[in-house]
Write a protein that binds this DNA or RNA. Structure first.
Lengths: 224, 224
DNA sequence: ACATTGTGTATTGTATACAAATAGCCAACG
DNA sequence: CGTTGGCTATTTGTATACAATACACAATGT
């Protein structure tokens, strides 16, 4: 993607992920164009992309709204992720290169360091976690699979809730990643898939717990 | 999608599926705009959509080409379909309504009629088959899952090769559909998923065989 | 009071002109 | 003979003007 439309995409996406654009709120192309400093044309391309990623929705008459994520949506999306990333891990096990294994270890080491600080460094955790999973998807060498996953993983709710995770949960991710690496080194697809599936399911429950704490801390009228 | 961009999408898509636009061939926006009788703007929207459906590809400098499907691509895509539609069938089993069950039976009856003609009516078979699978995906009630599947199923090679299927293979589809209906009536998710997975795997081999016959019938230089 | 139709306004859709980038070509040079 | 550099033609990217559509709300009639 070229400059203006890429810029619009990143900008709008960031606004949604950070919650600046509230779920359910209508989006007007011209307003975004102003906010991004580009014309409506690249904004429209960005919106089309964001729609395929389910970050925005369009009603019958093509008006755009920031997507709302119900608990069912989140659960559905974790379920799909578990299936797709499990499959991805299975494929990766028999295809992963030594270089990629090294990258996996490196990302997980950085992730560990970020988690074990007195106050966990969540942005770094998220970044290294993303990087870890990306290497696996790359190693799976399935173009379509990779495509689908990029359309699922990023969700505003999850992104924001991550800051509520406690250290124990973050450490579990680290350990599960170690297990995955072990499975890859043994080239054991069954094992890798099983761990990955469990990893994502566990992450789902961690999210659900943290999210619960999160909304409980808010006044009732907002939490509803 | 509004009129012009929808028109462009359908038109270009049809040209690709029918093989009028040859895989590997470069696509120029203006040429398509002329062909569709619209301006470049809606054509660009259509191309973006077709790209997410993997019917076209873009190189590093954003030039568009009709996607080429290697055997590995086809296999990969059947593998994903087996996984996703299997999952879909499992979910559908516990959610499907009586109305939807009736629709399933109706589509499969029409499919049977099309297959049992002296000379099988392939277009009708394809249409009713599509309809059958759509009802299941709808019954699965997973928005994202449905989205992903629409981005996978249609492939030019498969579309064209379908005309090579022999009657026995088409009949097997009909029988497997009956089994699926039985599994749904028992609300048996395990069973439904297993049949669906097998159904898609079998379809893959049927395709591979027919495709083999297909390309064998061509002069060597084209078949290569 | 309620539904319905009409009208103005806000928003999206499309065409077009122009800007930017890229590829292909050809010449100059090692 | 191959390689590099720059020019031109081609193609894509962006802005903008205008067209079509949908919405809000008032006016009208029942």
């Amino acid at each position: 993607m070229s400059r203006a439309s890429e810029r619009a995409y990143q900008h709008v996406r960031a606004m949604i992920l950070r919650g600046e654009l509230v779920p359910g709120e209508q989006i007007r192309e011209e307003q975004l164009a102003d906010a991004c400093g580009v014309s409506r044309t690249p904004v429209r391309e960005a919106l089309q992309r964001l729609e395929t990623e389910s970050l925005i929705r369009r009603n019958d008459s093509q008006r755009s709204f920031v997507a709302e994520w119900s608990r069912a949506d989140v659960e559905e999306s974790f379920q799909l992720r578990a299936m797709l990333e499990g499959h991805s891990a299975r494929r990766a096990a028999t295809r992963i290169s030594d270089v990629q294994l090294t990258e996996l270890k490196s990302a997980n080491a950085k992730l560990e360091a970020a988690v074990k600080m007195v106050r966990p460094d969540i942005p770094t955790f998220l970044e290294q976690n993303r990087s870890f999973h990306s290497v696996i998807i790359e190693a799976a060498a399935s173009f379509r699979l990779a495509n689908m996953l990029t359309h699922i993983v990023e969700q505003p709710v999850i992104f924001r809730t991550a800051h509520q995770y406690d250290q124990e949960n973050l450490l579990r991710s680290h350990h599960e990643h170690m297990e995955l690496i072990a499975a890859f080194e043994r080239r054991d697809g069954d094992w890798a898939e099983a761990i990955m599936t469990a990893h994502i399911r566990r992450a789902f429950h961690a999210f659900a717990d943290a999210h619960q704490r999160d909304i409980s801390a808010l006044p009732d009228d907002i939490a509803a």
